[in-house]
Amino acid sequence: MVSLNVNGRIVDLDVNPRMPLLWALRDFVGLTGTKFGCGRALCGACTVHIDGQAARACSIMVGDAVGKTITTIEAVSGPVADAVRAAWQKLDVVQCGYCQSGQIMSAITLLTGNRKPNDEDIDLGMEGNICRCGTYQRIRAAIHEAASTLG
């Protein structure tokens, strides 16, 4: 039995501690907003927050997440999260949308640590999130937009 703190509730899972957190969330906790894209920490579709920091759920193992606070796209909240979501919706960033859970989780981490990121900060901070539809221009604009609404 492994006990995880996911979105503010404690879940007890009968899984191997070496299972990637991604599959524990998707197949055992039932939270499917966190996506499987590459399984190798190359694309960022599986980004969640662990203790408030972006983490790739396909690479972090369940055992390494024990005792920490895990937040997924379904529950991420607060002024930064609200500003990011609002900017994403205002600019109609999404296309297929599959990567966007991860993009949003990364953008929240970026903006939490840096309220006024410049283009290079965005390039480096968002490097790990691939969008095959190519929505990068709008992601960049939405991050700037969210930064400006956060003041």
Binding site: Q89, V93, G97, Q100
Partner: peptide, 8 residues
């Protein structure tokens, strides 16, 4: 689809 795709 913007809202559904930004909330998971």
């Amino acid at each position: 689809d913007s809202v559904a795709k930004t909330t998971g």
